[in-house]
Design a protein around this nucleic acid. Structure first.
Lengths: 203, 203
DNA sequence: AGCATTATATGATGTTCGTCATATAAAACG
DNA sequence: CGTTTTATATGACGAACATCATATAATGCT
């Protein structure tokens, strides 16, 4: 044990990463401390050398989820002109692959009904993540007369996260696919994107 | 004990009602069998005279949530002309009072990230509830040329549930209120309702 | 009146949980 | 080389959990 002075940092990062994945997949309360530590190749007792409590771990995990979301956003939008960036982000977000991989996906959709039972720090991290995403979507929206871009961004974010959450919740595959397809088309139209591109199936 | 032959039926109904409220508030997994029974004035052991398992209780609770949702829908829409019914339903759903009382509210918003971890029966009840609601929203939408009412209903449901879930998740009150207000305005416009009614504050 | 039925209660089982006190052993430092 | 520091391990604590076997007592039927 103890393989270097900054090994602890690496270990902690690994634990948080695993926790972030597991908690998106199974919910923060369903993920046990011992489970996370075992997945990191450790035993449960050492946990409290890194975190003050499980609530602390949850807060750190939520923070990391939004870091990963930033990467996803950047990957979909960078080096693209605004219209194309917006289309790319919508297609990536409201997609089957996002629906089918909650452990790698957006925290807002994954934790929508879990987060309000969590501690102060986890909720603060969530707030910050939402605010940041809203800012980015607003900035991508085209300016049009009579359109409040900020309000449109809020409304679109609700539809995006609601559609992915609903598509995950539903067990009928056809209905789930329909939810994604309808939301995707509606979102593109509301974003002011030309309607009938060759309808790519984003999987 | 045993106060009559149909007393058991009453008791079961009471247990399911309590479970439906608690599970919307705290999540199905966070609600213990003993907790529900105690709230019903009983002890935990008798539980298995009424239900085969906790999963069974969850399924029954989800079923009941959608029954209550039907009542809410009917209450907001009955005896109203289509436009007015639609406006009334949107205002009631995307409201502060709905946000602040998840235990009495819509199962879709309350369980969006919980339900996909549940058993077959609970998920089937959820599917049925979503399908039924979608049918009702579709029927209320005005017919317009070039508008797929069903697709619009799906997209609007995603925005409604996403907005309420996000408004609950966020701890910043101002942001939470903004989410509701933006979604409400957007939904009314998308439903084809005249834009600037005297903006009632639905609480 | 007495017997069978059944709704609820008591209490136990074995798990899993978060937390913590303590032990170990390797690295860093003198 | 020896001492201190510290990352991880071991093991235990009490609480909560779902489940079930059994007990109790009141009802409905004969």
């Amino acid at each position: 044990m103890r393989y270097g002075p900054e090994q602890a940092e690496k270990t902690k990062e690994r634990v948080v990463k695993i926790a972030a994945a597991q908690m998106r997949k199974r919910g923060p309360e369903q993920v046990g401390v011992a489970d996370v530590m075992n997945r990191a190749g450790l035993t449960h007792g050492g946990f409290y050398a890194h975190f003050a409590s499980k609530d602390d771990l949850i807060a750190a995990a939520v923070h990391r989820m939004f870091e990963e979301a930033q990467d996803m956003f950047r990957g979909a939008t960078e080096d693209k002109e605004r219209h194309e960036a917006l289309r790319s982000y919508i297609n990536a977000y409201v997609s089957k692959s996002h629906r089918d991989r909650p452990e790698r996906g957006c925290a807002i959709a994954a934790l929508s009904s879990d987060i309000h039972r969590q501690g102060r720090k986890a909720r603060a991290a969530y707030d910050k993540g939402i605010a940041s995403l809203l800012g980015k979507i607003t900035a991508l929206l085209p300016e049009q007369e009579g359109v409040d871009r900020r309000a449109l961004a809020v409304s679109m974010m609700a539809e995006m996260t609601g559609a992915v959450a609903a598509a995950r919740a539903v067990s009928d595959t056809a209905l789930s696919d329909e939810i994604l397809a309808s939301a995707r088309r509606s979102l593109r139209a509301r974003a002011g994107l030309p309607p009938s591109q060759p309808e790519r199936q984003s999987r």
